[in-house]
Measured scan of single mutants.
Amino acid sequence: MEVRTIKVFTTVDNINLHTQVVDMSMTYGQQFGPTYLDGADVTKIKPHNSHEGKTFYVLPNDDTLRVEAFEYYHTTDPSFLGRYMSALNHTKKWKYPQVNGLTSIKWADNNCYLATALLTLQQIELKFNPPALQDAYYRARAGEAANFCALILAYCNKTVGELGDVRETMSYLFQHANLDSCKRVLNVVCKTCGQQQTTLKGVEAVMYMGTLSYEQFKKGVQIPCTCGKQATKYLVQQESPFVMMSAPPAQYELKHGTFTCASEYTGNYQCGHYKHITSKETLYCIDGALLTKSSEYKGPITDVFYKENSYTTTIK
């Protein structure tokens, strides 16, 4: 009895394709271990004539594949690729409408935090270190965002349907971005203890939790000093293409032309909904596939993004 075979390709990165001759009487799992086709788990399936010449994702289970996976995804987590594939199996079914010149995501599976993050990423200057993220990001900007969303979920250790947080998501993504040249110098002034300067680099240099107003941050924000008295913390120097200011959701007025974009969060910790506000020729609110415009805006804002380049204080 002759062994019926077909020729397929296996890959971990969709760049390096490895030619395989597979036995049609055995499952993919018996031949390769966990195997995925377009995100779908085909591990328990036997090869079919229609699979001839198709590319299958496999887990990096030998040295060659491990090197290829690390170079593309910059992670050695053995569960990463499987999590990416199972997320992709959902995100490829989502709709990605162009809204006001940006790629958004039609609401499904509690994905409003991903839509808000995706919209924000198209408006701030950011370059990702893992080629996987950078490639998928370019495709997302062009309207094909399924891979990018699935990668975000995998890097953030999230599953489809789980509630997510924009600030946490951005923080994970910033860790995989090139923020080497970003720098922030802060000064804390206390009447009792004097003053202390701190220099922050990388992710810490672009994120701040405690106030939404970048102007206020430049002037000074009140913080408790270690001595128990009130101290003032203010920005001395900022070198970065953008800054992200966050605070627990509270009524906040966004003035046209003073910011790049913002995240609105309605609801409580267990259950809520994100919308995205962007400042173009007027203010726009993007909620999944829905767009509304207004000249002014007041609502429960939790993150505001500002364009920056270089700032030095005039406070002496």
Rank of each mutant, 00 (worst) to 15 (best):
D23F: 11
V12Y: 05
F128Q: 04
F174Q: 00
I15Q: 11
F56V: 10
Q197Y: 03
K307Y: 03
A250R: 14
D109R: 09
F217E: 06
D180M: 02
Y208V: 04
Y214G: 01
T35Q: 04
Y57F: 13
T75F: 11
A132L: 06
N16P: 08
V236M: 10
P249K: 00
L88F: 01
T266F: 01
E281P: 05
Q123N: 03
G164L: 00
T198K: 12
G53V: 08
V3M: 11
E162F: 05
N61T: 13
T169A: 07
L153I: 06
C225F: 01
L126S: 02
A205N: 03
S79M: 15
S246M: 05
Q222C: 09
I124G: 07
T312E: 04
P97A: 10
E253S: 08
N157W: 04
C190Y: 00
A108R: 09
D180K: 10
P248H: 06
R66D: 06
Y96H: 11
T211Y: 08
G220V: 03
T5R: 14
F80V: 01
D62W: 09
E308C: 10
Q196C: 12
F174H: 07
K293R: 10
V304D: 10
I45M: 14
V22G: 04
C225E: 11
H273C: 06
T76H: 07
T198S: 12
Q123H: 02
F70G: 11
G202V: 05
A142N: 15
N147D: 15
N100I: 10
D109F: 02
T258M: 13
Y155H: 06
L65P: 08
Y57S: 06
G272C: 03
F9R: 12
I152N: 02
T116A: 15
G39N: 10
K316S: 15
T27V: 14
A262C: 01
F9N: 11
T282L: 08
G194Q: 02
S25E: 15
E308Q: 07
F217M: 11
H90D: 05
T75C: 12
E308I: 11
Y155W: 05
T5V: 13
G299D: 00
L163M: 11
C285W: 11
I286P: 01
K218I: 04
D62T: 11
P34H: 12
K127W: 06
I6F: 10
V166P: 06
C190W: 05
Y208T: 03
F32I: 15
C225A: 04
T19A: 13
V12H: 09
P224K: 14
A262P: 04
Y96F: 11
D303A: 06
N16D: 08
E71P: 06
D63I: 07
I315G: 14
D165C: 10
M207S: 05
S294I: 15
Y297G: 00
E296T: 15
I277R: 03
L151R: 03
N157G: 12
D135I: 08
Q238V: 00
T91L: 04
N147R: 09
E264P: 04
T226Y: 10
P130I: 02
Q175P: 07
L119F: 00
E52R: 10
Q251R: 11
F70P: 03
E239W: 01
V236A: 06
L81T: 10
T5M: 11
G288N: 00
E71L: 12
G202Y: 03
A250W: 02
S25Q: 13
A132K: 11
P130D: 09
T169D: 06
N129Q: 14
D13S: 10
H276C: 07
N309S: 15
Y28W: 03
F217N: 01
Q251H: 15
I315W: 15
T159M: 13
Y137R: 03
Y137I: 09
Y252R: 07
T312F: 12
S213H: 01
G272P: 02
D13F: 03
S171R: 15
A262S: 00
D63P: 08
P249Y: 00
V206Q: 00
T35V: 15
N309G: 12
T120G: 00
G29H: 06
C271F: 15
C190R: 02
A87D: 02
T27L: 11
A87F: 03
K219L: 11
S295Y: 10
L163A: 06
F70Y: 13
N147W: 03
T302Y: 03
K54C: 14
G164A: 02
T232G: 02
N111K: 05
A154P: 06
E239I: 12
G194S: 04
G33E: 08
K183R: 11
Q30G: 13
L119I: 01
C227S: 02
L114N: 08
V166C: 00
T292Y: 07
G53R: 12
K316A: 15
L37M: 11
F305V: 11
L17A: 12
Y208M: 04
V304T: 08
Y73N: 05
